[in-house]
Design a protein around this nucleic acid. Structure first.
Length: 480
RNA sequence: UCCUCCUUAGCUCAGUUGGUUAGAGCAUCUGACUGUUAAUCAGAGGGUCGUUGGUUCAAGUCCAACAGGGGGAGCCA
């Protein structure tokens, strides 16, 4: 019986009228004791349910409150009012779920994102979050479609890992041992993890890359797409303790192939969303434009959201080496006038956020792929270049977001790899399985990691990463 | 973790050099109106001014600590 309903998106999209239909959804507003704006999440647009005066019991009408869930049956007719093409003239209205209007926190008015974050369980029912999470869905779907169409194998790498040598920040410990001090101890007083569930110390993964490389040494092309955890005390608009990462890993790819794939990938999924979320993106673009109006003139972005996305899809990313970037920054008026907080002195130090932003937002005004960083500031597994100073790394920097992709060609040469591990104090014995790929049929290969939420931020124009994941986890916050 | 700003009604915000009974819009409730688009009109209810301590004759207002939040930085995706 519930299957007989029509989704509001379909009801609104069809040119048909004068037919019987049942719509179900949540009341956004009830105007004039007659007009219900009903939304079921299939689209940001509401259908107008007309409850003609005098035809419904007071008792029912009183229960049609903002937030209530109702079922409305009647005839879909061309609208007599101006705001919509069709409307549903109700013959029967059933309250499926009441909503106490004195307590329901959402009102038909503008709410701050900070307030909505405190009621994350209800914020899906707003226009902004409705649009954001439909776009998020499309982007996720497009990730799978892109790789599937290219013959990549979707690999589920473990979420619990014994390795603490993945080289990407602080990890959350996973244990079933008691935390009240009664856990079994070694002679030296440290915890005896041999008694723990896995018989060893385990953590939540910070990256599926090392396992991904193992599979790429068999399937050629694989990707992962799953949750990733960092126990860093990061309090920013672009970090989460739990986030979703996409990590493709390809055999027989060098750094340039890697960058080509990353650029094609980003363009593809943005294009997919533009083709499939036009209405939601338009809404988000308008939301962003309204927000920008509040800012001082020189803080406003030159392009609107839709123009920005179109621009990214249609133009090549700028590619340059770290060394070239340093030269540009060093010669920039910005640096000469000492406007950087951290002035560019010379070669070898990592770029600060302000430098990345300058390159992307001021100098090139488009996404930038930076390659060939000094080996000292990058991970052990990155392939050493012939110059002896740099590694075949690449970062993709996006306007407004910063680093959206980090990747590299991997070091497939056993001697170079183990030497680098030694220099960087990475325990080779723990990673014997990783090193086995270099022992048995090693090949040139490359891959990258893309932060999914940062991509969703870029596409939706949302400023805070906590607003593009349903239930964000960050320091001091794991409600819902 | 560091820097900085903020915390007043359910929400968004005013609140002057410290001074009598802390305001507005929206929301809610009551009534009116009835083709409305965040409906409109009239009326009503709603506050331990984040918490604790201090200065003062007097603190929403000044000071300190703590808590929560925003923005920036670091770590990175």
């Amino acid at each position: 019986m519930f299957n007989k309903r029509i989704k509001i998106k379909d009801l609104l999209a069809s040119d048909k009228a004068n037919y019987q239909a049942t719509a179900m959804g949540w009341v956004r507003t009830f105007r004039n004791n007659q007009f219900i704006a009903l939304n079921d999440g299939s689209t940001n647009n509401n259908v107008q349910i007309v409850a003609t005066l005098g035809e419904f019991d007071e008792a029912i009408l009183k229960r049609i409150t903002t937030g209530a869930c109702i079922k409305a049956t009647g005839e879909v007719i061309p609208s007599l009012g101006k705001g919509q093409k069709v409307e549903l003239k109700a013959t029967a209205i059933e309250i499926l779920g009441d909503s106490d209007s004195e307590k329901f926190p959402l009102q038909p008015k503008k709410h701050s994102l900070e307030f909505l974050r405190e009621i994350a369980h209800l914020r899906f029912r707003t226009n902004t979050f409705g649009a954001v999470f439909r776009v998020r869905h499309s982007l996720a779907f497009a990730v799978h479609k892109f790789f599937n169409d290219k013959g990549f194998v979707y690999l589920h790498t473990p979420i619990i890992t014994a390795s603490d040598a993945e080289g990407a920040g602080e990890m959350f410990k996973v244990t079933s041992l008691p935390l009240d001090g009664t856990a079994p101890k070694n002679d030296d007083g440290s915890i005896n993890f041999k008694e723990d569930f896995f018989g060893r110390s385990t953590n939540l993964t910070v990256s599926g890359q090392l396992e991904g490389e193992l599979a790429a040494m068999a399937f050629s092309d694989i990707y992962t797409f799953g949750p990733t955890f960092r126990a860093e005390n990061s309090n920013t608009t672009r970090h989460l303790a739990e986030f979703w990462m996409i990590e493709p890993e390809m055999a027989f790819y060098d750094l340039e192939d890697n960058a080509n794939l990353a650029e094609e990938f980003i363009k593809y999924i943005i294009k997919y969303s533009m083709d499939n979320n036009a209405e939601d993106l338009e809404f988000l673009a308008q939301r962003l434009a309204d927000e920008e109006k509040q800012k001082p003139q020189n803080d406003r972005s030159e392009m609107g959201l839709l123009e920005k996305l179109k621009f990214v899809v249609e133009n090549n990313f700028e590619r340059l080496t770290y060394t070239e970037a340093i030269d540009i920054l060093k010669e920039s008026n910005h640096n000469k006038k000492k406007k950087f907080q951290y002035l560019i002195e010379g070669w070898g130090t990592d770029l600060q956020s302000e430098h990345e932003r300058y390159l992307v937002e001021k100098h090139f005004k488009k996404p930038v792929i930076l390659t060939d960083y000094p080996k000292e500031i990058k991970s052990f597994y990155m392939r050493q270049n012939d110059d002896g100073k740099t590694v075949a790394a690449m970062d993709i920097l996006a306007p407004g977001i910063g680093e959206i992709v980090g990747g590299s060609q991997r070091e497939e040469r056993m001697d170079k790899l183990t030497q680098r591990m030694q220099e960087m104090n990475v325990p080779a014995d723990e990673l014997w399985w990783y090193l086995d790929t270099r022992r048995f049929g090693a090949c040139p290969h490359a891959g990258f990691g893309l932060g999914f939420e940062r991509l969703v931020q870029f596409v939706t124009g949302m400023g805070n990463i906590r607003d593009v994941i349903p239930f964000p986890r960050y320091p001091k916050s794991a409600e819902f």
